[in-house]
């Protein structure tokens, strides 16, 4: 049967059609296959990149404390504002000093290059104003302003670790009560401003009191750790200074 089968099959193929341009068609198909594979490879590569980016974003949002995705802060200044991976060191300094009944949390837009801001709420969840902190590089000797006498320099107080400071507390306006301290580290000229303001539009003066007392603000501003809580390149006189909070008593930039 073996030999016969071979012979039988030869006759089966008698009506075989001639080969035309099949060879060229095979190479055209091979080229199309290669293009499809390349497109599939590029597509899957793009998908992998997108998945990695999405995973990284999700992990960042999930794991980084205080990273509120709704904050419309500029991306560049946002990234530069993180001095370390540790949870917000400025908040870590403020929270123990504040009244234990108050809750202090980042307030969107919560941070930028050289500044942070926080909301204060009481135990019932009622707002108790804001706390704003900023750092500046002041090259020359700083003339601490005098509210009542523009152009004159205030006499400074001294805190440990080579920090000079001036307190600016203003409670005359019940609707805009402010406790502020400007402190300067005399060896490198770095200057911080810390301001606690009460909730505006409160019904009475007690309701509009800032969440921090003047003494608490002073204690925070003169703590050496506050200077270190900002990155060395952070500066509210820098390129992104437009986003810095407006203080009741602005820090002079030396050109004044």
């Amino acid at each position: 049967m073996t030999t016969r089968l071979n012979q039988l099959l030869e006759h089966v193929l008698d009506g075989e059609p001639v080969i035309g341009d099949e060879i060229d068609e095979i190479f055209r198909r091979a080229d199309r296959m290669r293009r499809r594979r390349l497109q599939a490879l590029i597509g899957s590569g793009a998908a992998v990149v997108a998945v990695i980016a999405a995973t990284g974003y999700a992990l960042t949002v999930t794991l980084m404390p205080g990273a509120d995705t709704s904050a419309p802060a500029p991306a560049a200044s946002y990234a530069a504002a993180r001095p370390s991976a540790v949870a917000d060191p400025v908040l870590a300094l403020i929270a123990p000093i504040a009244d234990a009944k108050l809750r202090i949390s980042p307030r969107p837009p919560e941070r930028g290059s050289g500044w942070r801001q926080y909301s204060v709420t009481d135990s019932a969840g009622r707002p108790r104003g804001t706390i704003e902190v900023a750092v500046y590089h002041v090259a020359e000797d700083l003339c601490f302003p005098v509210l009542a006498a523009p152009g004159k320099c205030a006499r400074t107080e001294w805190a440990p670790a080579g920090v000079e400071y001036v307190r600016y507390d203003d409670e005359k306006d019940p609707d805009w009560q402010v406790h502020q301290t400007i402190a300067r580290h005399i060896t490198d000229g770095r200057t911080v401003a810390v301001m606690a303001t009460g909730e505006r539009g409160a019904d009475d003066a007690a309701g509009g009191k800032p969440g921090l007392t003047g003494a608490q603000v002073q204690k925070i501003a003169t703590d050496r750790r506050l200077f270190d809580a900002f990155g060395s390149s952070e500066d509210c006189f820098g390129p992104s200074s437009g986003a810095c909070p407006a203080f009741k008593v602005p820090v002079p930039d030396g050109s004044d």
């Binding site: 009506g15 075989e16 059609p17 099949e22 068609e25 095979i26 190479f27 198909r29 091979a30 296959m33 290669r34 594979r37």
Partner: peptide, 21 residues
């Protein structure tokens, strides 16, 4: 079927060419 045989052979050899490259 010669038409089907031609189609299957072309597809097969195209894969040989693409994968050999």
């Amino acid at each position: 079927d010669w038409d089907l045989a031609t189609e299957l052979t072309e597809a097969c050899l195209a894969r040989v060419v693409a994968d050999s490259r």
